[in-house]
Amino acid sequence: MGHKGWSAMRLLFVLSCSLMAQSTSGDMSYSIPEEMKTGFVVGNVAKDLRLDANQLAARKVRIDTEDNSKPYCSINLRTGDLIVKERIDREELCSETVSCVLEFELMLENPLELHRITVQIQDINDNSPFFSKDTIKLEIRESAVKGARFRVNEAQDADIGQNAVQSYSLQRNEYFTLSVNSNVDGRKNVELVLDKELDREQQREVALTLTAADGGTPPRSGTIAIQVSVLDANDNSPVFSQGPTELVYLKTRL
């Protein structure tokens, strides 16, 4: 038949298998929280696809990943359960992406079948808000007027949605209040607002604690210390240490 004829037959066979697989294909979708233990049952593919679980081993059922990524799930050949094979960390897998999905292909032979499986990974509140620094240091002149604003860096959180940072609170103090506003991009603008004018002669430093909390159940929080150094302003006139009577007495004697 020749080499060309053999190649054509192989191509026809591959196309036939592909059509057969497509004709029996079906999509399955599951949803599980991240961080589930190894062996956790995602779902039963044999039941959902109406397959005979007793025939799975004979039909060489297997799971393939499209990009040869880590096989987070596997098939129990006795029961047809799709189970967690390795710990799934949504933050490691999808970073800050809102939608986090694992995609697999379920392959069976005799006859050939191909089924697509998608597993939506739900975020859990397993991370606390944190600040990029341990301490925020501010230098503010005592001449700053009441209502002056001083921006501080917002907190970060590896979780998303309601499990991300939702609120801020400032330790009660004599001088500052807190203002938090959301920007168009969803980020928060966090500012200290001067509520009482500073006086370096009375207090040279002000120590504060800022707390960021997420909206998880239960909520998690992170704190940062704020150190305010009060800079001197020329708000006092020179004075003599001696009184007027002593100065007059000194002039008389001279």
Rank of each mutant, 00 (worst) to 15 (best):
K146V: 15
V101G: 01
S128T: 05
Q156V: 01
R90E: 05
F104Y: 12
F104E: 00
S169N: 14
V165P: 08
S99V: 09
C94T: 09
M107A: 09
Q120W: 02
G147R: 14
L106H: 06
R90C: 07
N54V: 08
Y72H: 08
R151A: 13
E105W: 08
I136W: 01
I117S: 08
S143Y: 03
V119F: 03
L106V: 12
C73P: 00
K133W: 09
T79I: 09
E105A: 12
C73V: 13
E105K: 11
M107D: 11
D64M: 11
E113L: 02
N163V: 05
C100F: 01
V165H: 03
Q122L: 03
V98E: 14
S74K: 01
S167F: 05
P71G: 02
I121H: 11
D81S: 06
N125M: 04
A53F: 13
K85I: 00
L93W: 10
E113T: 01
I140Q: 10
L102A: 12
R90G: 06
F131D: 10
L56T: 04
T118M: 07
T135S: 08
Q55E: 15
T135Y: 03
V145P: 07
N110A: 15
I63H: 01
L77V: 14
K146Y: 08
N68G: 15
K60D: 14
E142C: 02
E103I: 03
D81K: 07
Y72Q: 07
S167R: 12
V145L: 14
V61M: 12
R141F: 14
V165A: 06
G80M: 12
I124V: 14
E139F: 13
I136K: 02
L170H: 13
D157A: 02
M107W: 12
E92G: 11
L82E: 05
Q156E: 02
N153P: 00
R149F: 06
V84S: 00
I88F: 06
I88D: 04
I160G: 09
K70A: 06
I63M: 11
I140Y: 09
Y168I: 10
Y168R: 11
F130R: 06
S132K: 15
N76A: 11
S95Y: 13
V145N: 11
N163E: 13
N153Q: 06
V98T: 13
P129F: 00
D52L: 13
L82N: 07
K85T: 00
S143F: 03
G147D: 14
E154T: 02
R62Y: 10
R87W: 03
L49Q: 10
D67C: 05
E66Q: 09
L93H: 10
R151Q: 10
P71R: 02
A155V: 01
N110M: 14
A144Q: 09
C100W: 05
N76F: 07
Q122R: 05
E154W: 00
S169L: 07
H115S: 15
D134F: 12
E96W: 08
C100S: 03
T79Q: 10
D81E: 13
E86Y: 08
P71K: 01
R141T: 15
R90M: 02
S128Q: 04
S132L: 14
D89F: 05
E103C: 01
Y168W: 10
Y72A: 02
F130Q: 00
E105G: 08
G80Y: 07
V145C: 07
I140R: 07
A158F: 12
K137T: 13
